Simulated assay, not measured.
Amino acid sequence: MTQTAEPHHFAHVTDWVFDLDNTLYPHATNLFSQIDVKMTAYVSELLRLPREEARAVQKQLYKEYGTTLAGLMARHNIDPDDFLSKVHDIDYTWLSPDPALGEAITALPGRKFIFTNGDRTHAERAAGRLGILDHFDDIFDIVAAGLTPKPAPETYDRFIALHHIAGPTAVMFEDLARNLIVPKSLGMRTVLVVPRNFEPTFSEIWESDPAYDDAVDFVTDDLAGFLRTIAPPRLSR
């Protein structure tokens, strides 16, 4: 794992790919906790389980299938549209506009994409609240992925084919190291976005990825600062 990022490490990059949740906005906002609660409630109602049992089922589905949605579809044939609309019915005012991040993204040369296991509406609302939505060329969501979530290789294949992306000229930013395994194998630069000062979050225990460290080239707890650091000198003035 490279310790210090410098502009020359990214001088070849023409396509910048960003996960959404806990990547484009920081863990500290805890926005995803709202979605997490909604997913537990959905499982509880669907399976008629007490909340704690439903949460255990939800996390098992997540670990086994990559997302709770994929697990519920596989085991219970649920309507994905119904699930996505219900779990993303959250309060986006938890997010604050981030002009510094917007400026840093704008300064990057080439195309920029959001690649998320959530749906487009959620991505648009979150990025819109951050004030960065207009800086992206497209959003590749779980629907575009055929409802197959990262880290499935076929999902990356769909994304790459749709946007004609060459791995060696791309970089991917993620908060989960396991979602960087395929990008790394395709020749992409990989950046893991972690909580500020590595502070614990509600999800760290069950989302810890120590086995996938080899998939990570760089680590940052300040995305905007990282992007400013690696921007070409002529664009960082």
Rank of each mutant, 00 (worst) to 15 (best):
2 T>F: 13
2 T>K: 13
2 T>Q: 15
2 T>E: 15
4 T>L: 11
8 H>Y: 05
10 F>H: 08
11 A>N: 08
12 H>T: 14
12 H>Y: 03
13 V>L: 13
14 T>D: 06
15 D>Q: 05
16 W>G: 04
19 D>S: 02
21 D>G: 13
21 D>R: 07
24 L>C: 12
26 P>L: 06
27 H>N: 03
28 A>K: 08
31 L>Y: 00
32 F>Y: 07
32 F>K: 00
39 M>N: 11
42 Y>T: 10
46 L>Q: 03
48 R>K: 14
52 E>Y: 09
52 E>M: 10
54 A>Y: 04
55 R>Y: 12
56 A>W: 00
57 V>Q: 12
59 K>Y: 04
59 K>V: 06
59 K>W: 07
65 Y>G: 04
69 L>A: 06
71 G>E: 05
71 G>C: 05
72 L>I: 12
72 L>F: 12
74 A>Q: 13
75 R>Q: 15
77 N>F: 11
82 D>L: 08
84 L>Q: 14
87 V>M: 12
88 H>S: 01
89 D>L: 09
90 I>C: 01
92 Y>V: 02
93 T>D: 11
94 W>D: 04
96 S>I: 04
98 D>M: 08
99 P>F: 06
99 P>L: 05
99 P>R: 05
101 L>K: 03
107 A>G: 14
107 A>T: 12
108 L>P: 13
110 G>T: 05
111 R>K: 10
112 K>Q: 02
113 F>G: 10
115 F>I: 01
115 F>M: 01
116 T>W: 03
116 T>E: 11
121 T>P: 00
125 R>A: 08
128 G>V: 09
129 R>L: 01
129 R>P: 08
131 G>N: 07
132 I>W: 02
133 L>R: 13
134 D>Q: 05
134 D>H: 11
134 D>G: 10
135 H>S: 12
136 F>C: 08
140 F>C: 11
141 D>F: 11
145 A>V: 07
145 A>K: 04
145 A>N: 07
150 K>E: 07
151 P>Y: 08
151 P>S: 10
154 E>I: 10
155 T>E: 10
156 Y>M: 12
160 I>V: 15
161 A>R: 15
162 L>V: 09
165 I>V: 13
166 A>D: 15
167 G>H: 08
169 T>E: 15
169 T>K: 12
176 L>E: 09
178 R>Y: 14
179 N>V: 01
179 N>T: 10
180 L>N: 14
180 L>G: 15
180 L>Y: 14
181 I>C: 10
183 P>S: 03
186 L>C: 10
186 L>A: 10
187 G>W: 06
188 M>I: 02
192 L>E: 02
192 L>F: 02
192 L>M: 01
201 T>Q: 15
201 T>N: 08
206 W>P: 01
207 E>L: 11
207 E>M: 06
220 T>V: 00
221 D>Q: 03
221 D>C: 01
222 D>P: 01
225 G>H: 04
226 F>N: 08
226 F>K: 02
226 F>L: 09
230 I>M: 03
235 L>M: 14
236 S>M: 08
237 R>K: 12
237 R>W: 05
